[in-house]
């Protein structure tokens, strides 16, 4: 009776197992790297209808974030400015710039400027801007250094782990209230004022939820 399998086949089970282990490892690594918000979201930089330059307005000119994002301290959404807000200055400065044509059109007709959303919180997540900024979480923590961006891009992953990093240890990320809109300021922890951060947490009853229903509600 001839042999069905050659002798070299004896190593085959081990080879198969090894191959599967390596393949699984590569697949896991690939998914971890390529299929998470860190890779998929960071760097998203859509073209906007008006090439608004944050580095000019918020950086060089030093406009406060709240001049345009007026409802950030009151509401869940930070809100984009009405065209009227732009026209406060641009009726005088560069009043005929072709780049500002959509803003002027919006101001005259009431039709909105179709800004493209950069940061999208999914429908299954509840997020409230006001509760964060009024407790000392600066814009920069989630949006990056917008005051240095020519076009706004997605700077932070906004994954669940990203949220939980801060929710678990808020004291490491808080700023003094006066520094919330100063995107260049260091956190209290970075200034070595951990006691101040802890006092702030105690005083304002900062209790970031870590339970599922805190955000998925």
């Amino acid at each position: 009776m001839s042999k069905i399998f050659p002798k070299s086949a004896n190593a085959l089970p081990l080879q198969i197992v090894l191959f599967i282990v390596v393949l699984a490892g590569v697949a896991t690594a690939a998914v971890t790297y390529y299929a998470t918000p860190k890779y998929l979201r960071i760097g998203y930089e859509p073209v906007q209808p008006v090439p608004f330059d944050h580095s000019l307005h918020a950086g060089q000119l030093g406009l406060d974030c709240r001049y345009c994002h007026a409802s950030v301290e009151k509401s869940a959404t930070s809100s984009l400015p009405a065209a009227q807000t732009c026209m406060n200055c641009h009726s005088v400065i560069k009043p005929a710039s072709p780049l500002l044509a959509p803003v002027r059109h919006s101001y005259e007709t009431g039709e909105p400027v179709p800004w493209v959303k950069v940061h999208v919180a999914p429908d299954y997540v509840y997020f409230n801007h006001s509760v964060h900024v009024t407790r000392g979480v600066s814009c920069v923590e989630c949006h990056g250094k917008v005051n240095e961006m020519t076009t706004v891009y997605h700077a932070k992953p906004h994954s669940m782990g990203f949220c939980l990093d801060c929710h678990r240890q808020p004291e490491k990320f808080l700023r003094a209230p006066r520094d919330v809109y100063n995107l260049d300021s260091p956190t209290l922890a970075a200034q070595g004022k951990m006691d101040e951060a802890l006092a702030q947490i105690h005083q304002w009853k900062v209790k970031p939820p870590q339970s599922c229903s805190g955000c998925h509600r």
Binding site: P46, A70, S71, K74, S75, A76, T77, S79, L80, P81, A82, A83, Q84, T85, S106, Y107, E108, T109, G110, E111, P112, V113, P114, W115, V116, K117, V120
Partner: peptide, 20 residues
Amino acid sequence: RPEMNILPYGRSVEYTVPGL
């Protein structure tokens, strides 16, 4: 993700705070 828009008012509406 599909591209989404944010559509602000052309002129501000009195008392209105988006989201409230």
